[in-house]
Simulated assay, not measured.
Amino acid sequence: MATTELTPAVPAYAPPMARPGYGKKSAPDQAPRRAGDFAHLPEREASVAAHIDRLPDGAAVDIKTLARELAAYGQQAVAKALENLSKAGHLRRFREQIGTQWVTRTHFSRTARDDAWWNHYLKHDTAPPPARTASRTEAYEALAAVGRTAPRMTLSAAECAQLEPLATEWLARGATREQLIAALTGGLPEQVHSPGALARRRLTDKLPPEQPVRPSTRIMECTACGVPGYPEALPGGLCRQCRGEERRLETPDKADAVRAQAARVRAGIRTRPSALPHPAPHPAPSALVR
C-alpha cells in the first residue's frame, strides 16, 4: 500500500506590528503597485523598499525589526538604506501628537516625492493639489460661471485669467464656489460698464478673512538620527549633520588652524639660536595640532 507524504502547511506571514500609533503609515495618492517601482534604486535600497511597501499600516519598521525580518542585511545596512530611501523621496519620519502623547511614525510612499510634496503633506495630512496644466482650475471655472447667474457680469477669458489669483485666494480662505459667485452677482447696479473692473473691486474689498492657523500636531524628524526640525531644515529628510555638511564646514577651519600652527613653527625655527647647550625635547604627541 502506497504511503502519501504530507507536507505541513506553511503558516501565513504575519509581520511584527508596532505599538498603537507607531509604525508604518502609507502616504496618500500613490501610483498602483508595479513590478519596476524601485528599479531606479540600488539593490539593497530596492529590497528594503519593496519589503516596507508590502507591509500593512501599523507594521514595525524600526531598524532592529527590519534587520530581523530581512536576512540579507544587518542593522547598519538597514539604517543606511532607510537614509538613502529618505533622500530618494520614498519615506519621511514625522513626530505626531496623539492626545497628550507624542509618537513617531514612518510615512512611506511607493511613488518618490520631492521635499515640497512631503512638506505639504506634513502640514495638511493630504497630498498637494496636482500642478496646474492646460485644464481650468476651480477658481477659473467659478469666474466663467458668473455670467450664467448675472449676464451683465459676463467675464471674458482674459478677465477670468487676470482675476484667477484673487478667486483662488477666496477658495483658499474657505469660501465656496457658490459664495464667490454670489459676491460677484449680488446687488448689481442697473448698468455694469466694466464687469472685469467691478469683479476685481468686489473680490478685493470682500476678501474673506484668513483661516485661523491650527497648532501643528506634527513635526518632521531626521530619518537617520531622529532629531526634530522644520522641514525646510531637513531636505531629503536629513539634518545637516547627517547630510555631512557640518563636517565639510569644519574642514576649512581645521586646515586654517594647521597652516597657522605650521607658520608659527617655521617662524620659531628661523629665530632659534644656532647652538643649544642641550637638545630641545620633542613635544608630546598630545600637544600636536590634529
Score class of each variant (00 low, 15 high):
Gly174Asp: 00
Pro189Met: 06
Pro235Phe: 04
Pro42Arg: 07
His51Gln: 12
Arg214Glu: 13
Val48Gln: 11
Ala9Asp: 10
His107Val: 06
Val78Ala: 08
Ala197Gln: 13
Met153Cys: 04
Gly226Cys: 00
Cys242Lys: 01
Ser47Arg: 12
Gly89Trp: 09
Pro195Cys: 10
Arg148Lys: 07
Leu82Thr: 05
Gly147Tyr: 02
Gln101Tyr: 11
Glu246Asp: 15
Leu234Asn: 12
His51Thr: 10
Ala255Gln: 11
Arg259Cys: 04
Asp114Leu: 06
Glu246Phe: 05
Leu171Asp: 05
Pro277Gly: 13
Ala157Gln: 14
Pro273Thr: 13
Pro273Trp: 15
Gln241Lys: 13
Pro11Cys: 01
Leu91Trp: 03
Val192Asp: 03
Ala284His: 12
Asp53Trp: 08
Leu238Met: 05
Ala280Gln: 09
Asp253Ala: 07
Thr154Pro: 06
Gly229His: 06
Asn84Gln: 14
Asp114His: 02
Gly99Met: 09
Ala139Arg: 03
Arg243Cys: 12
Thr111Met: 03
Leu91Pro: 01
Ala199Val: 09
Gly268Ile: 15
Arg152Lys: 09
Glu246Asn: 13
Glu210Gln: 01
Ile219Trp: 12
Leu288Val: 10
Ala157Leu: 02
Ala262Ile: 08
Thr137Pro: 00
Ala77Thr: 11
Thr217Phe: 15
Glu246Trp: 12
Leu143Phe: 03
Met153Val: 12
Asp37Leu: 04
Thr251Lys: 10
Gly99Ala: 08
His193Pro: 01
Arg243Ser: 09
Tyr22Asn: 09
Ala161Gln: 01
Thr137Gly: 02
Asp57Val: 15
Arg270Asp: 12
Ala14Ser: 10
Trp170Leu: 03
Pro11Asn: 02
Leu184Trp: 02
Thr137Ala: 04
Arg19Trp: 15
Ala145Met: 05
Thr111Lys: 05
Gly174Ser: 02
Leu155Cys: 01
Ile98Ser: 06
Gln162Thr: 07
Ala224Glu: 09
Ala257Asp: 13
Arg95Met: 14
Val265Phe: 15
Ala81Phe: 15
Leu288Tyr: 12
Thr65Lys: 14
Ala167Glu: 03
Ile219Arg: 06
Met153Ser: 02
Ala134Glu: 06
Ala14Ile: 14
Arg248Met: 08
Glu169Gly: 10
Leu41Val: 03
Cys160Trp: 00
Arg270Gly: 12
Ala67Val: 00
Ile98Pro: 02
Gly23Gln: 07
Thr223Ile: 06
